[in-house]
Design a protein around this nucleic acid. Sequence first.
RNA 1: GCCCCCAUCGUCUAGUCAGGCCUAGGACACUGGAUUUUCGAUCCAGCGACAGGGGUUCGAAUCCCCUUGGGGGUACCA
Length: 485
Amino acid sequence: MTSPARTRIAPSPTGDPHVGTAYVAIFNRALARQTGGQFLLRIEDTDRERSSPASEAMILSSLRWLELDWDEGPDCGGPHGPYRQSERLEIYREHARRLVDGGQAYPCFCTPERLAELRARQKAEGLDHVGYDGCCRELGRAAAAEKIRAGAPHVIRLRVPDAGETVFRDDLRGEFTFQNRLLDDQVLVKSDGYPTYHLANVVDDHLMGITHVIRAEEWLSSVPKHVLLYRALGYPMPHLLHLPLLRNPDRSKISKRKNPVSIAWYRAQGYLPEALVNFLALMGFSLPDGRELFSFPDLVEALDLGRLNASAAPVFNLEKLDWMNGEYIRALPLKELAARVRAFGVPPEREARLAEILPLLRERLKTLAEVAPRSDFFFADPAGYDPALLVPRKCDREFARAVLEAFPHYLEAVGPAFEAAALEAAVDRLAAERGLKRGNVFMVLRVAVTGSTATPPLVESMAVLGREAVLRRVGAAARRLAGEP
RNA sequence: GCCCCCAUCGUCUAGUCAGGCCUAGGACACUGGAUUUUCGAUCCAGCGACAGGGGUUCGAAUCCCCUUGGGGGUACCA
């Protein structure tokens, strides 16, 4: 057994909770569970412009909905808090001071305008790399301190060596070597005193005892800067694993415009949280036995970091999610499904009948959202359908008229219990005695009773509706067919 | 531009690290059939891929190189 892993998910509260966050959370949490460690939630709200408490709240509730809850976090605290970076400013300041004192970082007074100009010039000259030119590097401590005293706005930059290379290891992809000369003097503290991701992330991961950093591939190229930071601070490196990014159908990094990325969207569409988790897990991991439907506990048991997907660039395929969600819906005990549908949102007057209706609907559901439209006919007489629907293909109006007029008589033989078996017998007798094709008889009645050609099983639906409603609808259909309003 | 990652059916993938068991397996989707009371569900069948080129080897989807393609990064965003 491996030693307990402490892992984390570190979302930035700058918008809707993203499926990518959930995707990464799944593996972090699974590893923590598997090894008996802890899974933490840390809010990285160091971008004052874009961060919002509302977004943070949505992230928490979305992750909870997915049952990806955490052992330590901003809401529940923990031994290494606070877990919101905006509340840890003093810690970062201290670290920055240490780095400046040690000469591994330095204050930079360059204006954004100068930097923009510099970048533009470098681009225009076609330099093989663009980045900070080190203008403030050799300012000298005294001069820098003087400017700071005078209140000059400044940032703190990491002093990256001009030569040599930085090597690190990703547990999924092996060893990497980066040329230091190609690395920028990364900003560690912004002019507003807030840390950048790079500083805060390294400091917090260490202080919070994170052993495994599992995150998206977009971070891979900033790892060398982090390595330099860890080294400068004298902190040991955690394990690093970079997961491939989720993609749009056009293979670009998954984005709002081209795909629904908000966890809330999936919830609103009527996807089950366990199905979404399963689906997301499958994007990055496969079980040795090839099983595709598995629960989070299954994942915890089977997770093997070496089997994480390092190579492919998974495209988010809604069709497969639909299929999977249908499988989960059908696997749910009826009572549980009813509870989920109720939680999803059902008009109160419909709640009581859910228990009768759901068995008829269940096998054709892909999402919870389909329950409402598919069960409308149970609650309201069909209106507005095209009378032509009443006439099955290869049949004439006369056929439909005969069925609709005859059916009430056959219904008399159906006992007060109004059960499906008796109803089916009635339809069968009608077809047999009148010499009508059974399937077509069913279709006429189906349209009359439901207003649609695609419905749950007819006689079962009639049984739920009751004699009165069925008679009323069949009568209305007959009049409709005759052209009456 | 520069740096980095990646490359198996339309899509998600198994197989690649330890080359032969792969005339490449599974899933979704699609097509056909069975069943049925429509739709769906289910069962069966079918379609369908190792990006290209060089090596290494008795043997390569698997190892190496190049090309091409896709992606990420290149911010006082994360």
